[in-house]
Amino acid sequence: MQAFQYKKANDVDGAIGAGSTAGLKFVAGGTTLIDLMKLNVERPTMVMDINSLPLTKIEKTADGGLRIGAMVRNSDLAHDLTVQKGYPVLSQALLSGASPQLRNMASTGGNLLQRTRCYYFRDTAYPCNKRNPGSGCSAIDGYNRIHAVLGTSEHCIATHPSDMAVAMVALEASVQVKGSNGERTVPLKDFYFVPGSTPNRENVLAPGELIMSVTLPRLADGTRSYYLKRRDRASYEFALASAAVVAQMQGRRFQRIRIALGGVGTKPWRSTEAETVLESHEASAQNFRKASEAALSGAKAMHDNAFKIELAKRTLVRALTVVTSAA
């Protein structure tokens, strides 16, 4: 770990004012940043602690949605009654992630910004385009069982590791960010970049911009949602494949359906292809399979991760089955 200066932000404007300082990183729960600093992957010269910023509320919005402060801890969000009742997919996704200790620390904003678990990104002995642009990707010809099959490029195949963000993408969440030029709102599906030739650029945040909150739109009455995560062991592991489904039914037909996949994409993967297959169609095993084929139609397997394509399809089929059979 490289030596760094530590400052505590007292208010949002102060944080944003300092935010564009070269070498500055905000720290919230620290569950990604501190790890990566210990590994010399992140080497900030100044760390600004935003834990005392007043961004800890979960509140209803005027149009019936939910605004979640950036500093709301994952545990608090997962156990919030409004979330559990109104957005079960989000609570399920949060509780499937990490461990209770990590969830107690991790913040909503920080979870959105967590870095990939790619072995080669985390070890400075290896070339990595995300960490050191232009140095090459070690995962493409390396051991890539946990890597992405969707949204990859010849420069990077790392997955986005968040469960929470997958549920939020399916919920069509938006992110409120604030910088020195003011506040803006970005739909979460547009918040992340696919790696392309610049895997070091992961999202739309400009230097110094701070996530203020995440807003979930109001869901139509009777909307059902579900998150299913597949992995090797039963807990404490990133997804090999996961599916978040938010569905509004009219009888046996999908009136509206939103689908996102985790563990398989270079970003939380919204699948409009699968949605198109299902929307205004009947909930049936055949249609579920068709939708899952559509969701993975652009998938590209590497040496060790071909199984993820079939696993993701089956995970999505099961999630759709569960969400449509709920009482």
Binding site: Y119, D123, A125, Y126, D141, R233, A234, S235, E237
Partner: peptide
């Protein structure tokens, strides 16, 4: 390529957890 045990930590080297 390197002889490096690539999953050399408790997140990537899986042991059974209580839930298993």
């Amino acid at each position: 390529r390197t002889g490096h045990p690539i999953n050399n930590n408790f997140a990537d080297y899986m042991v059974a957890v209580n839930a298993d």
